[in-house]
């Protein structure tokens, strides 16, 4: 039987997680803003040192993503020196607690319904955003320079959680017969959640990469034009200075997207196997199937673009974002507006 009380507790946990995420977002944003403030003061000195440091880093040809940017070390120092907790550390801690509650909420939903917590849009959204959060936290526990991306991860996650809470929420219920009796619900949808989460992360990084590349290009042009101390995009520019360079972001984006692409491929294949078990055909051009196919093809195009002269870098990143747009469309419009066999949104 459905344990409605536990479902209530699960809901409460998710709401508290949202509140904590808001706090963490404020923390991360304040950290970035503070950085840009201090950067304004320290810019001259930092720029000089940064410039001196760059040739060594790039010339080594390490190809690593983890190249900490000289400015970030610069900025982390003052907060530590003051002995207080930096806004970033605070935000990181709060989002960790939030993620803990988030995961607990998802788990309680699963226990309350005695099944996997991904049978409708609400559950799919809360579960996949939990995966994104956990992935982000795990990645950035040790690679602290990635924490600077916190604002850009928490923003979309909050958006998704709020959409889930306001538009997609449905009471805890049992599975409809079409989802019963099949272990493919664990495999197919589990992989789809992973794929979606990676697509979200990948899109965040690709978006930052684009902004960063543009920023670096303009700055480089200004330097070439003989400007001593070029400025671009004001405070936003300072935030970008703080992030890893576009080249590192590109490499990170590629790594995330290549895992995502493998996950999408498995989603397609497992979905096809399930469709064959349930409906007697492995492929039927149902809208959901069409859109998963579209996502897969766009990401394949992205991987190709990375290996094609003239498309590497910026243009490839746009393709990655196009792929993400397809993911969002597949998730929102296809689930709610276009009706197919995969009508499991639970929204009547």
């Amino acid at each position: 039987m459905i344990d409605q009380q536990l479902a209530e507790v699960s809901h409460l946990a998710l709401v508290v997680a949202i509140v904590l995420y808001v706090l963490a977002l404020i923390g991360f944003a304040a950290d970035l803003a503070g950085t840009s403030q201090r950067r304004s003061d320290e810019r001259l000195a930092a720029k000089d040192r940064a410039r001196a440091a760059v040739p060594a880093g790039v010339g080594g040809g390490a190809g690593g993503v983890a190249v900490a940017e000289p400015p970030s070390a610069e900025v982390a120092a003052p907060a530590a020196a003051r002995g207080g907790m930096s806004a970033q550390t605070f935000a990181f801690g709060v989002s960790a607690v939030g993620a803990l509650l988030h995961v607990a909420g998802v788990a309680m939903r699963a226990i309350a319904t005695e099944r996997v917590p991904w049978a409708n849009m609400y559950e799919f959204a809360t579960t996949s955003s939990a995966v994104v959060m956990v992935a982000f936290l795990v990645f950035s526990v040790r690679r602290t320079e990635l924490r600077a991306l916190g604002t850009f991860v928490l923003g979309p996650i909050l958006l998704l959680m709020l959409a889930a809470q306001t538009f997609w929420i449905v009471p805890a219920a049992k599975l409809t017969p079409s989802l019963q009796n099949s272990h493919w619900i664990y495999i197919h949808i589990g992989v789809a959640i992973l794929a979606t989460a990676l697509s979200i992360l990948g899109a965040v990084v690709a978006g930052l990469q684009l902004a960063s590349a543009r920023h670096e290009k303009v700055l480089a042009a200004k330097v070439a034009a003989g400007e001593e101390d070029p400025e671009h995009w004001g405070r936003v520019g300072h935030v970008l200075d703080r992030l890893p360079r576009s080249v590192s972001l590109e490499a990170l984006s590629f790594r995330i997207h290549s895992v995502a692409f493998v996950c999408w491929t498995f989603t397609l294949i497992f979905g096809a196997i399930w469709a064959r078990e349930a409906w007697g055909r492995y492929w039927g051009w149902d809208p959901k199937e069409v859109w998963t196919f579209i996502i897969w093809v766009i990401y394949a195009a992205y991987l190709h673009a990375r290996a094609t002269g003239g498309f590497r870098g910026t243009r490839a990143a746009w393709l990655a974002l196009a792929g993400f747009t397809a993911v969002v469309f597949n998730y929102t419009i296809v689930n709610t507006v276009i009706n197919g066999l995969h009508s499991y949104s639970g929204l009547g």
């Binding site: 195009a301 190709h304 094609t308 003239g310």
Partner: peptide, 21 residues
């Protein structure tokens, strides 16, 4: 060429859209 493969892949994605609408 790779460029053609890339363009054709994107065309394939776009061409599939009306099939869902």
């Amino acid at each position: 060429s790779m460029q053609t493969a890339l363009v054709l892949l994107m065309l394939l994605a776009v061409a599939a859209v009306p099939g869902s609408l």
